[in-house]
Amino acid sequence: MSSLAQSSAESGNGTFEIIAFRISDQDFCVRTTTIREIRGWSPSIPVPHSPPDIVGVMNLRGSVIPIIDLAHKLGMKSTKPTERSAIVVAEVHEMVLGLVVDGVSDILTIGTSQVQPVPEITTSFDRSVAEGIITHDSGMISFLSLSRLFQPSELETVAA
């Protein structure tokens, strides 16, 4: 269903909705359709011998899901979670996982024209994880592609 919505959003001059959030004073966003839920911060249980970007696991209404430090995953300095931090529960490659963010800003409706490609000169930023940059009146938002950020093989490792 998500792939259907994505395709419909990308085709034509339509609009689509994003959820904007902040990590270390930087704005990022993902498609609303990939999100299943937004939760307040609660401590997760650490898993031994887990990769450095895995914070731990948590119990989401009976099902155990991995919690991922998105800042670390994006190659940024990970911040210490506060009570204002949030966990964005997303569904990627039919796998549910939680992303730790500093705070959820807004739900925005964005026109397709607003999405601009990532400049090639910014080599320091891995372009493959960003679908583009969305310009906004409050600034610029990196439009992340979760399906590219998390490769299926990687997810299997996490799940295991």
């Binding site: 959820i19 609303t32 937004i38 204002r84 959820v104």
Partner: peptide, 18 residues
Amino acid sequence: FQTNLLALNAGVEAARAG
């Protein structure tokens, strides 16, 4: 804050409902 979260979740649900 909690209301905001609820509203966000509602928004997510609404978006997912198309």
